[in-house]
Write a protein that binds this DNA or RNA. Structure first.
Lengths: 154, 154
DNA sequence: TGCTTAATCAGAATATTTCCTAAATAGTAT
DNA sequence: ATACTATTTAGGAAATATTCTGATTAAGCA
């Protein structure tokens, strides 16, 4: 973990407290831990996965709390669901930087990347006609370098 | 259903038979019906939904067959899974036209649109470095016209 | 400090998805 | 027409995912 990351993380946590207060959400140990764990998870974890990780810090936390917390934070716009074809809900913290996803068909790992020239591209007319769009994301699918070289571990 | 649609549908079904033969897949009534139903479904149905529809034609079909068929056809590249944040697997038939998705946060309906200037855009360097990409898709999320006007029916 | 109420907990209940087994059926090639 | 084998079926098991209940805890405020 770099200095910079530590700094950004700290910044996010301060922001988290602020936004909780704004939304009338109490700052519980559980909430903070779930959020912090998601913040430092770079792999867009499913609920169960995140539950396991949070458990390492709060051994008595119930999975119900993780579900509830994620739903609450999502509603408040502090975290996002990730698009997948797996039939599993996955989350990521809002890191404040627009990014998109690279999805490996073998290992199902998801990697972030930024693409400014896409972000600034005007949407096609069909989008405006459809309704009010609030977000856009790109997903590239394929086989990641790791899987191609090692045959994958799926 | 327009003349044109009928024609395209027919074309797709012929292609389906050909590809089944190529892959050594027998042309069963069930397979054909599942595929045809998906072809004419414009709403990217989940397995259960598609099962209900196919049932109208083959009342004795088992859901297991639908699961198996979809998995088989997906493997053969004749149908695709759709990206969602719902935690549900959804499918669409390969209509032979590159398209992308508009997803309504209220009613969860998914609409297709084409975006050629995106399709022809070169990927950012990060993608090439990541591995071998075989597909790309864009998802716009927001509130569709229908939901905005009527308050949605979630 | 004490009150109020949101939030958490244990763990059971429910729901959903997917897979499995053994027997019956039906394509396809000969 | 026959044989071979993939495929389907019923129905239940297994695996996952999600929600609920009632009792307890603790955050935030007066």
């Amino acid at each position: 973990m770099h200095e910079l990351d530590q700094h950004l993380l700290q910044e996010r946590l301060v922001d988290f407290e602020k936004r909780c207060r704004e939304n009338g959400l109490k700052m519980t140990h559980q909430r903070l831990t779930v959020y912090r764990e998601l913040l430092s998870s770079r792999d867009h974890p499913a609920v169960e996965t995140l539950f396991q990780r949070v458990r390492r810090h709060i051994s008595t936390i119930s999975i119900d709390t993780v579900y509830r917390t994620l739903a609450t934070l999502e509603e408040a716009g502090m975290i996002n669901r990730v698009d997948t074809t797996e039939g599993v809900v996955r989350y990521e913290a809002d890191h404040g930087v627009s990014h998109h996803h690279l999805v490996c068909k073998k290992c199902h790992r998801i990697k972030d990347f930024v693409w400014e020239s896409f972000d600034t591209m005007p949407p096609p007319p069909a989008v405006d006609h459809w309704g009010e769009s609030v977000g856009r994301s790109v997903v590239f699918t394929g086989i990641c370098r790791h899987c191609r070289e090692q045959g994958g571990e799926k």
